[in-house]
């Protein structure tokens, strides 16, 4: 149903993520070294033995970077999933219930959003202590308000749509309406926000690790690798460049994925079974021609679908 052919962002993002995942899983096995043990001389350059060289105490960069990738992917993925579940639930309840509960929940999310993310994470780490799980909890709490806000607005529109009113008239229970009518019709913003949140999570995790509050030593993490290698920047710039490339690749991949999902699920791309009111899926070229013929201005940027979309792919499925 989703057309991948013209969706470079989606393919690119997914490909980079897939490659990094493979590297994270297989890197330590292929490299064959223990990431936390000295296996060579300090500051060795890339060689047949140590593919990406060694760090200041002779640990293998290739394996350490693979473990760092593992942490970055797992932390960004897991914390974003938790954010999504919590935030979506809050947005759904606030948007559908409305009134005082809505006010209360939204003011709560605003309070969290008003605090700078890094500072907030540091405070949480101070309160619940160091370690892998508290890190994920902190990042999940940071991400949740964004989901709540992003989910609330489509729910506000959806709750007044006739099919929701019809379900209420029929006596369908409200929690069921929320999960079976409201949520499925609001998945696009949710998925897009998931990818952006994950990209942000990579950055926050690196920043925290850089500050020494993220992944704890001796385990490698991109942020900590940078902070530890800063002293040797002049001597061996590779030690800083490698983790920086890793962070860049991961954020770019998640952001590309967000763009790609947005495009793939956009109704204007003709990919989805009618998520918007009144507009059935149709060929964009014919749509543009139609509005031009009707004497209206064709709005630029209606959706980045190329005009040479095959005709039969997008003809309206009318009876």
């Amino acid at each position: 149903m989703i057309k991948l052919k013209k969706n470079g962002a989606l393919i690119g993002g997914a490909a980079i993520l897939a490659l990094l995942t493979v590297y994270a899983l297989l890197g330590p096995l292929v490299g064959g070294y223990d990431p936390n043990l000295t296996t060579g001389g300090p500051f060795e350059g890339p060689s047949g033995e140590h593919w990406l060289g060694t760090d200041n105490i002779g640990r293998d960069n290739f394996v350490r970077l693979a473990i760092a990738t593992r942490y970055a992917i797992v932390i960004s993925l897991v914390s974003s999933v938790i954010s999504m579940v919590i935030g979506t639930a809050i947005g759904l309840i606030a948007g559908y219930a409305g009134g005082r509960l809505d006010n209360l929940l939204m003011r709560g999310t605003e309070i969290i959003m008003a605090i700078p993310a890094i500072l907030f994470a540091l405070v949480i780490r101070v309160i619940i202590g160091p370690g892998f799980i508290p890190l994920i909890i902190a990042m999940a709490i940071i991400g949740a308000p964004g989901f709540a806000r992003i989910m609330r607005s489509p729910i506000l529109v959806l709750r007044d749509r006739d099919f929701v009113v019809a379900a209420e008239i029929a006596g369908v229970r409200k929690p069921f309406i929320a999960l079976s009518h409201l949520l499925p019709n609001a998945t696009t913003p949710m998925l897009v926000n998931f990818a952006s949140t994950a990209s942000l999570a990579v950055l926050i995790e690196s920043s925290l690790s850089f500050l020494g509050q993220g992944v704890q030593a001796p385990d490698p993490s991109a942020g900590r690798m940078i902070s530890e290698s800063m002293r040797y920047m002049q001597l061996d710039p590779l030690l800083i460049v490698l983790p920086a490339i890793l962070i860049t690749l991961l954020t770019v991949a998640w952001n590309l994925l967000a763009d790609g999902v947005q495009l793939a699920l956009s109704p204007k791309a003709g990919n989805l079974a009618v998520p918007t009111r009144g507009r059935r899926r149709r060929n964009r070229t014919s749509g543009a021609a139609g509005s031009a013929a009707a004497g209206t201005t064709v709005v630029a940027g209606e959706g980045p679908v190329p005009a040479d979309t095959p005709q039969d792919d997008a003809t309206p499925a009318r009876v």
Partner: peptide, 8 residues
Amino acid sequence: NDSLDPRY
């Protein structure tokens, strides 16, 4: 167009 859930 609006009284039937598009995903049902």
